[in-house]
């Protein structure tokens, strides 16, 4: 297998080439630092993304005033292939106010051991 990708660890944007030999060992070239090789390995074997979104604030006023959305994030990068499922869970939430920054909104999301927390204190 041979795969080309762009490293997003820093602004250099190295063009990486990852090749696996017959034993399944992955060789990375094109990286200007070790972080590039680590990035390529994770990106190809188990890609993850930090998910940021907003969820509904309970009792939002119909006239559009006051707090309507609560911003949130996963506390750690989340397995990429499960992100659509996670988003569905986030959009199904209704968070009652007040809410504090760091407050857990969804514990152990999808049973993957990663919490979803609020990113702003809102009343």
């Amino acid at each position: 297998m041979r795969k080309e990708l762009t490293c997003i660890t820093c602004p250099m944007g190295c063009r990486l080439v990852a090749e696996s030999d017959s034993s399944g060992e992955l060789a990375v070239s094109g990286n200007r630092c070790p972080r590039g090789a680590a990035y390529a390995r994770e990106e190809l074997l188990a890609p993850k993304r930090t998910v940021t979104a907003t969820c509904r604030a309970a009792g939002a006023a119909v006239d559009g005033s006051g707090t309507r959305r609560v911003p949130c994030r996963t506390v750690a990068p989340f397995p990429k292939e499960r992100v659509p499922e996670l988003l569905e869970a986030i959009y199904g939430l209704e968070v009652s106010l007040p809410v504090a920054r760091g407050q857990v909104l969804l514990q152990d999301a999808l049973g993957l051991g990663i919490d979803l927390v609020a990113t702003r204190t809102l009343s």
């Binding site: 930090t50 940021t52 911003p71 994030r73 920054r101 990113t119 702003r120």
Partner: peptide
Amino acid sequence: LGQCVHNGFGLIEFDEELTGPEFAE
């Protein structure tokens, strides 16, 4: 920052990757 709910803020200031609302707060 309040509407920039994505992460990528604060790597220099706080040495960690925050969202806009977290940085602002």
